[in-house]
Design a protein around this nucleic acid. Sequence first.
DNA 1: TGAAATGAAATGTTCGAACATTTTGATTAT
DNA 2: ATAATCAAAATGTTCGAACATTTCATTTCA
Lengths: 253, 253
Amino acid sequence: MDSTLVLPYAEVDPKSPVPLYHQIYLDLRQMIQNGIFAPGGMFPPEMEICHAYNVGRQTVRQAIARLVDDDLIERFAGRGTFVREQPSHTQFFLDRSFSQQMRELGRKPHSRTLSIEMGTVNAENIPTLQALKGQPCFLIERLRLGDEEPICHQTSTVLIERCPGIEGQDFTNQSLYEILSTQYHLIINRIDHVVRAVAADEYRADLLNVAEGSPLLFVGTTTYLDDGEIIEHSASYYRADRYEYSTTQTCCD
Amino acid sequence: MDSTLVLPYAEVDPKSPVPLYHQIYLDLRQMIQNGIFAPGGMFPPEMEICHAYNVGRQTVRQAIARLVDDDLIERFAGRGTFVREQPSHTQFFLDRSFSQQMRELGRKPHSRTLSIEMGTVNAENIPTLQALKGQPCFLIERLRLGDEEPICHQTSTVLIERCPGIEGQDFTNQSLYEILSTQYHLIINRIDHVVRAVAADEYRADLLNVAEGSPLLFVGTTTYLDDGEIIEHSASYYRADRYEYSTTQTCCD
DNA sequence: TGAAATGAAATGTTCGAACATTTTGATTAT
DNA sequence: ATAATCAAAATGTTCGAACATTTCATTTCA
């Protein structure tokens, strides 16, 4: 009899052509996303929702089933329904897989910034960026190390149109993806990866401390926002003996 | 009143602790997977299923909802329920991406078998296969070409415990994955990929027509069945100048 | 005090019934 | 023959009711 105070959020209309359970689903979802119910906390029981919207239990259960399907809430027979911690959009990105892989190998990940500058997109050798040529961007060149040994040379290009002022952010403790998500509320929708084997040129051979011409693993990523716009592109060259790229393909991709 | 003849496939037990709708769901799914209902064809209407299992409509609807969720059937208000063309489990695999990529580049994919033999799992250099060392398997070594130019050297190891007699199959027109799916009804659940850059050894340099020591892209795949068992492992070495590996990471993996 | 029994609350399962909506095909009227 | 109408069939939505099962807190008993 507590949360009844906040239910319903918006009224529902039984005469609307859109089913009641769907109206209720939308209303409850809105409340979850607006943080009306604390993540991890209790969600109102079925009967309470029934009374709040003045509908039958079946109808409420249909709405709730969708929320469960969306991974927004979790149910336990006998215990109740709980709001799930929002699945963070920052959970997947290349930075993390590098740091993670280093830790799995028992190495301390570390990063040394070689250069940071503002500029315009230079699309040479990068077909994906052709269309964005000349747009203002933010360039970071970094050397990534594991246990102080060089493992990767990485160049990131961040389009600044959607995140002005990003050059002033601190990248030592937060990843680029965390900053995009928390500071600019930009939602990353997709990352394309391209992996190639290349021979080390003089510059990178020197940086990575390998012989010129020895094999390097090139990993190119292009990051897309919700609306399909490119927000970032990175080119990483890994020492072949220190790094491998891995993915899992599931049946239901 | 036609399909009633085949329903139910197995009897359901109302006194069982497993819910009726789940028993019915399993039974119907089994029938779909065994091809009792023609793909693309009509699925029995709700009421017919109700009578066949002697249960209420709600119960049948719960079972059906799961089948819809599994993409096994499709429903249309007023028209009926239809069996979906099976989402082919052969749709995703390395073979296809090779053939596809060749076609995208305007090259004709082609494959030359270098050796086929029965043997036991030799796990040297392959940690994933350690646990399966000594198990009987089927080994294929192939050279893959695009427009008659060598592009990839591939070695496949197929565990034969789950697919006895596979060595007698014809691999020229069907992919390994098609055979596993259609002949043995084995469902592939997951494929792990590992990508590395390596230097060409003498043997492969010769086969792929490149200089010894030049970079090659190594792609290792491990294929898992529904039950988590490994069914296949492959090691492919690609010419770095003719091939690149690509994937897409989506928000909702 | 500690353990067992009880009961309330929540979700899970199942039935029956009604009415709405969509589609298809048959019937009817032009 | 063609078009409009209508009825039947199928899925979609919604209510009410009951009972099962799980969990948790409270009460009771040794």
